[in-house]
């Protein structure tokens, strides 16, 4: 009997030590990629990838030129072009223009695409690697992989991610698009979606919808590996351009290392005064039917009847 008990001990011991080893492995795993990522970002975006052929895309937003299209009396054209080009579901502004306050009481306009952070909180938390960095440093989403947990949305400190809560209402031509993570059209119900720097255009050497559509040439697409940036009208030396214009990144202190740089300003290059009272015009989704904010009621036999708890259709 004594021997029996010893056998039991050994079995239990082996089981427990295997369990402990497993636990250690689990606890150890997350540290490894995090550390290596730290390293990559510490050596500056200029050499974000060892691969010389790869690009290191970034965006520079010159707010000295941005007036939120208020001077033109149209909705922000970057947002509008993005919506039209990606058949963005109603309510989604993948690049949104925010109104910000200046210390003296004036205002400026800040276009905000996805910042494609190098230490991206969204990529860190994704449980199934549905969101990832591609070799050019852009954060993409594989919508056939995404399980819809929305952890990435909780993690994003810039609220630049959106969820397809229902089957989005899209124009019929959206169905003709060939889906890829580079061009996530048509949007898929139950998945997270966001700006991806129009990666399909960049691959073909074209500028994103927002950059091409901006009437003031505010947005520059840049590549750190070539140290160049272009807004479609001029080409600048990226490093010099950032240095000479006091470029900054939004919420730099968070350590997310965004790939979007801002040049401070309030549209003065087009003669906009900081106190200019004109407001942003709302963007439109021509295919929208208001279903985004509506929720179906309790009874299945009243399917056509749309009943809401809040925000009844006006």
């Amino acid at each position: 009997m004594e021997g029996d008990n010893k056998g039991l001990n050994r079995r239990e011991f082996l089981k427990k030590s295997l369990g402990a080893a497993g636990l250690l492995a689990i606890l150890g795993t997350p540290a490894v990629p995090l550390l290596s990522q730290r390293k990559a970002s510490a050596s500056a975006p200029h050499s974000a990838s060892g691969n010389k052929k790869a690009h290191a895309w970034c965006m520079v937003i010159d707010m000295k030129k941005c007036d939120g299209c208020t001077g033109l009396g149209v909705p922000p054209q970057c947002t509008q072009a993005c919506i039209m080009g990606h058949y963005a579901p109603e309510g989604m502004k993948w690049i949104e223009v925010y109104e910000q306050k200046l210390p003296g009481g004036g205002r400026f306009f800040q276009p905000t695409p996805c910042y494609q952070c190098e230490n991206a909180p969204c990529v860190n938390v994704c449980p199934v690697a549905a969101t990832y960095h591609n070799e050019d440093g852009i954060v993409l989403i594989d919508h056939h992989r995404c399980i819809g947990c929305r952890f990435c949305m909780a993690a994003c400190p810039y609220q630049r991610r959106f969820f397809n809560w229902g089957t989005p209402k899209l124009p019929p031509e959206a169905a003709l698009a060939e889906y890829s993570p580079l061009y996530p059209v048509p949007a898929i119900k139950g998945t997270v979606i966001k700006c991806m720097f129009c990666a399909h255009f960049l691959r073909d050497g074209k500028l994103p919808y927002c950059v091409a559509a901006c009437p003031r040439k505010v947005l520059y697409m840049g590549d750190f590996n070539e140290d160049l940036a272009s807004n479609g009208a001029e080409v600048v030396k990226l490093s010099k351009f950032l240095d000479e214009n006091n470029a900054y990144r939004y919420k730099e202190a968070l350590g997310t290392q965004p790939r979007v740089w801002y040049l401070p300003g309030h549209g003065q290059e087009f003669g906009r005064e900081a106190e200019d009272p004109r407001e942003l015009k709302p963007t439109v989704w021509p295919w929208a039917d208001g279903s985004y904010e509506r929720r179906r009621g309790v009874w299945p036999w009243k399917e056509s009847d749309i009943w809401t708890w809040e925000a009844r259709p006006k």
Binding site: T29, N124, V125, V128, A130, I147, G148, R150, K189
Partner: peptide, 17 residues
């Protein structure tokens, strides 16, 4: 959002999450 893909957590799970 996609409960039918829950097995992806096993197939493609990342322990960083």
């Amino acid at each position: 959002g996609h409960p039918e893909r829950v097995w992806y957590l096993i197939a493609y799970g990342r322990f960083q999450s």
